[in-house]
Nucleic acid binder design. Structure first.
Lengths: 100, 100
DNA sequence: AAATACTATATTGCAAAGCTACATAGATAG
DNA sequence: CTATCTATGTAGCTTTGCAATATAGTATTT
């Protein structure tokens, strides 16, 4: 799996996964891992960045199967950003198709 | 234009542009600029890298309109690489589509 | 003759983002 | 009590595009 392709696109994937329902980090890692290899820890960096920029907020929920889970929820700003980024991505893919 | 999306994909674009005919750096920059913004100089780094790894070789041709042009030609290794990378890209795009 | 602009190649320093490896920690099964 | 699964998090590295800049040939304008 080409690591360079992922740059930027992973952020969009995380945001998109959160549009339907709140999820915690490990859960997101598992969902995205079904489509591509993603290193443990990679998503936590993205999630921290998204939180710093107020695209998501978080809350803790205790778990019976291990440590507490930190859930991530899209903010209004995050929803707008997800939309923009998705449009940009689809446009980008079309432009690449022209060149290859 | 999201700079992160370009990582890796630009290399594929350059390789793909060379599959039909040899081209020089400035010419490639102009062709790719029709689809996306790309900074002057960016492609020269990619081209140097591609040459170091024997995906392309080069030859100089004098020009009436300015300095000599350095043409880039795909090697057999480069053709194989372009094919692999293209397949990987198309697969990647499909997987992202599942996630968003 | 000098300044400007277009064509053309190339390098330097910077920033973004994923990867590897590692650290921490609760719960549970053997 | 050790291993394993769940779960979050950090440090250092690498790759790669960008901005800025340098160099240089040719042509046109002032």
């Amino acid at each position: 799996m080409n690591a360079q392709f992922k740059k930027g696109a992973l952020e969009l994937c995380v945001l998109s996964q959160l549009t339907d329902k709140d999820q915690y980090g490990y859960e997101l890692t598992e969902a995205i891992s079904e489509q591509m290899t993603v290193a443990t820890g990679t998503l936590y960096l993205i999630l921290r960045r998204l939180k710093e920029e107020d695209y998501v907020d978080t809350y803790l929920v205790e778990s019976l199967e291990g440590p507490a889970r930190k859930y991530y929820r899209l903010t209004e700003k995050g929803r707008n950003y997800q939309n923009e980024l998705k449009d940009e991505w689809l446009d980008f893919v079309k432009r690449i198709a022209v060149l290859i």
